[in-house]
Amino acid sequence: MKRLPFLSLFLLLFLVPVSGRAATATVPDPTAQMRPFVAKITNLLRNEDFKNDPKCERCQKIINIAKEHFDFREMSKRVLGRQWRRLSPEQKDKFVTLFTRLLQYAYIGKIKDYAGQQVEFTGQRIRGRRAEVKTLLVDRDKTIPVSYIMLLKGDQWMTYDVVVEGVSLVRNYMEQFREILRRDKYAGLLKKLEEKVKQLEQEKLQEATRPAPAG
């Protein structure tokens, strides 16, 4: 029995540093996870095989890769603010699906603009389960700072906000949605979101059926 204080002291001394080390060892490096993701996307964009790609198989590939690294649910939750807690699980799912599609069109629309821009990683910071990976999008005549704000889910860093030149995508949508929620309530917001997604979808279809411009 007398040995017990020693044992507990021993355990305390031994366990704390180990668990401390274990904690830092289990937090994966966010930049290390981001690099292959960015490389995969830019490789797809550079790939000449997709030059004639009317159905945009490449778009679907990009969406699938993005789903592994973006937490669209977390994004939806933050974009809605307090309204999120008032929604039923089914309503939440529906909103996430719609908002995800909106963002997908946002990025897919950019595919045709890709002209070999490089992504440079300029730093990162980690606090608890949050991390920010700072990058620079280097264009020929300008550089645009883009930050990815991430949450650790299991051993995967999932992006839930993108900050371009200091402008948070989530915060920007949040302020727009708040006005719509105040005027037209949630039903009105959902209707606007559906209309917007439909409009972007049609624009994309028209673009796909139009012959590609020369050069």
Partner: peptide, 20 residues
């Protein structure tokens, strides 16, 4: 193209960018 109310979107972007 991607905003629901371009006026608010631009106003918000202006203040966020300025703050940065």
């Amino acid at each position: 193209e991607l905003s629901f109310d371009p006026y608010i979107s631009l106003r918000n972007a202006y203040f966020q960018h300025r703050m940065r």
